[in-house]
Design a protein around this nucleic acid. Structure first.
Lengths: 195, 195
DNA sequence: GGACGCATGTAATAGGTTACATGATTAC
DNA sequence: GTAATCATGTAACCTATTACATGCGTCC
């Protein structure tokens, strides 16, 4: 009797959930916690989207759940990937797709920065440099942890850890590049102001 | 008598349009053509979103339009930024904001690439390297054009051309970094396969 | 005769965010 | 007592995409 709309295609979020469940069986709550650090460093979602999507994957037969009763805590639904789910995920991974154009509100601001007071503009850019430097530092800590704790088997192509490391490399590169660009712009603004 | 909903806040797309109109007065159609190459290299929109948004900006008093009659072509509405629009844009530029987390479907695929056949995975990554190399080449062509055609005044901080160049630098960096990461991954896949 | 460019829009739908909603247990 | 953790959801709203809709003039 659910009013849930049936969707025929699985959205990227669905594959993010399948990607997590291909590693471990998890409750919805656990999935939400895993997604606090974006999946593959480049996908995130809120719980209001995660719970209904898990229900859809279940209706599509890509995951199944068992209710686990707990003492002193609410019961939970533990989701597990089905063979069909694993196959759907594998098929999607190599399905051809073109990279979409990215949106970045900060770049839109920079496009109109010539209207702003240079001192304020400089402060803005320095602040954003800080945000990206912060993320970079966090990613570097994760990298150090991986290098310390992961066994040699994590380097195999068929290891989920290798895949996670590959996405981390991109995250590191992205934040490093963004922070460096902020520094370049800040220096250009400073040089332009002193003339 | 319009059924258009009145929104109180201006969305990033609205500021993208103001950013274009701060440079030149344009018709809706011209705005659409300018947006074929994303504004600031990181914002794009379809005409179904652009026409209503221009109407909203007009109702908010941030732009005005005059109908220009043309022979042998349909009439057009030419939009011009008002002083209030210019002020709203300037205020928004330095308004504090944190960078949101980016979504990238390709990274989500890489997170599950350990499930795929290595040969297919390699082809996927090489294809994406090609897409980013293409964009990089296009941006480099734009850079060369800027260096050739722009007067020394384009280097001033209060020049819209300087702002456009700054965003291009980020676009170049982004595509270069992405393509380089694809190459790293492709090589890692090749090395892993031959063992 | 048909495709393309100029020019302006509307309608339906999907995806994602914010706010709403509940309730027990544990730690301070 | 009050905040945080565990646990699962729903409702309302906003943004963006896809498809629909029209019509004249020019070029091949």
């Amino acid at each position: 009797m659910s009013a849930m709309r049936r969707r025929l295609t699985i959205i990227p979020l669905g594959y993010a959930l399948l990607g997590l469940l291909a590693r471990d069986s998890l409750s919805g709550y656990d999935v939400i916690r895993r997604m606090e650090e974006p999946v593959g460093f480049f996908w995130h979602a809120r719980r209001s989207q995660i719970y209904p999507e898990l229900a859809r994957l279940e209706q599509a037969g890509l995951v199944v759940y068992v209710v686990v009763a707990q003492e002193d805590r609410p019961d939970k639904k533990v989701y597990t990937l089905t063979p069909a789910g694993r196959e759907a995920l594998r098929e999607w991974v190599t399905r051809p797709s073109r990279p979409p154009l990215d949106r970045d509100e900060f770049m839109l601001k920079i496009y109109s920065i010539w209207l702003a007071d240079p001192q304020q503009a400089l402060a803005l850019v320095r602040t954003h440099e800080g945000y990206h430097a912060e993320r970079l530092a966090r990613y570097q800590a994760i990298e150090a942890e991986m290098e310390r704790d992961w066994p040699p088997a994590a380097r195999r192509l068929d290891s989920p850890k290798f895949a996670a490391y590959a996405t981390l490399r991109r995250g590191l590169e992205y934040e490093r590049g963004y922070a460096a660009w902020c520094r370049w712009l800040a220096e250009a603004l400073e040089a332009g102001m002193s003339q």
